[in-house]
Structure formats: C-alpha cells, structure tokens
Simulated scan of single mutants.
Amino acid sequence: MTDTPDEPGQVRPFAAMLQEIQGGAVADEAADLLQQLVTAVTDIGKKGHLVLTITVQPLKGNASALNVAGEVVLKAPRPEPAAGVFFFDTSGNLMRDNPRQATIPGLREVGKPNYDNVRTV
C-alpha cells in the first residue's frame, strides 16, 4: 500500500484518506475522543464505543466526484447512579421504612454523647 496508488487495483491506506477528510479535523477529533474513551473505561471499568461514520455521496452535477464527510461519536461508559433501598406499601408508595415490619414500642433515637465534661483519671 502506498499513500498515492499508481497502479490499478492498488489500495490507498485508510489512515491517509482519513487525514484528508475535513482537513484532518475528523482524524484529530477521533484521536481526542479515543483518549477520553480510554480514560472513561479505565475509571469506570465498563466498555465504551467510538463510532466513526464516513458518508460518501455523489456530487450533484459531476459524475466523477464524490462528497465525503466524516463524523466521530463517543459513547463513553457512565457510572451507575447511586441507588437507595426503598420499601413500598399496598398503594405503591415508596418509603424508607418497611411498612411490613413491626416497630418496637419505646424505641427512640439517641443523640451523640457529649464527652466535654468527662474527666479522665
């Protein structure tokens, strides 16, 4: 493979062509987004995707030319949202305390002890 094929059937390297789409902006963006993807994957521990789409369409009015555009999309992994445990009642309402669990009468919340006036021996 060469950058500029001079024989019929010779394939031009994809990277060389990619460097020319939108003046290299697509290749530069792909490199930046790939770096972000690697960081996100290593931080979160889940897979992600980098999607490169190249659109090729005929150029209107010129049968020997094509419009070529590129787009790069990052689908980075996301951390799982923090979840809390809730219970539901017979009406479908969510609450923190289990409505099916009996409460022990006489229990109350005790405040934090104050050790400021305690002397040590």
Score class of each variant (00 low, 15 high):
T120Q: 14
R119V: 13
A82W: 05
A40Q: 04
V26S: 09
T103H: 08
F87W: 15
A76K: 07
V38R: 08
N93A: 12
P113G: 07
G45V: 03
F86H: 09
F88E: 15
P8K: 09
E7Q: 14
D43G: 05
M95F: 02
L34P: 00
V41K: 01
Q19K: 15
T103R: 13
T53Q: 14
V38E: 02
L33T: 01
A40G: 07
D6F: 06
T103E: 11
L33C: 06
T53R: 15
D3N: 12
V85Y: 09
P81Y: 02
G61H: 06
E71W: 00
E109A: 14
A27G: 01
V51W: 00
T42N: 09
G106P: 05
T4L: 11
V11C: 04
A16C: 10
Y115F: 15
V121Y: 14
I54V: 15
L94Y: 13
D28Y: 01
P105H: 03
L18K: 11
I54C: 03
Q36F: 01
P58H: 10
R100A: 15
K47W: 08
R100S: 14
G23A: 13
D32M: 11
P77M: 04
N62R: 15
L37Y: 04
R78K: 15
P58Y: 00
G24W: 04
K112C: 02
V121K: 14
A27P: 04
Q35W: 01
Q10I: 02
R108A: 14
G9H: 06
